[in-house]
């Protein structure tokens, strides 16, 4: 492979073993998510920076809620973060 082809190699951070699947929660579902977590405002969710590599990769904007499909040793969990 030539040098030029090398630089064109595409990297998706979601290929990496440490990065779980991220997805933007549609606005219509946000309310349900908050209800299931028993909180009244999305400000109370853990945060993720809008400059975060994963948030950028899925094109999340400030105020979006991101659902993260974590695969833990204890089982699969859905975790939520709000973009700030």
């Amino acid at each position: 492979m030539s040098k030029q082809q090398q630089s064109k190699k595409a990297f998706s951070i979601f290929d990496h073993v440490l990065v779980p699947k991220h997805e933007i929660v549609p606005d219509s579902e946000v309310e349900l998510v908050l209800q299931s977590l028993n909180i009244n405002s999305k400000e109370k969710l853990p945060k993720i920076l809008s400059s975060d590599a994963a948030a950028k990769a899925i094109g999340a904007k400030k105020g979006d809620v991101i659902r993260i499909y974590r695969k833990e040793l204890t089982g699969e969990v859905q975790y939520y973060r709000v973009v700030v």
């Binding site: 951070i13 975060d52 590599a53 948030a55 973060r81």
Partner: peptide, 27 residues
């Protein structure tokens, strides 16, 4: 990651901050 033959999906460093910078907070 740009090196030919390196498996990008398994690069690992014990520098947690570096991982944060490249792969985000969840990683």
């Amino acid at each position: 990651k740009k090196i030919e033959g390196v498996d990008y999906s398994r690069i690992y460093t014990n520098n947690v901050r570096e991982i944060e910078k490249h792969f985000g907070i969840e990683a």
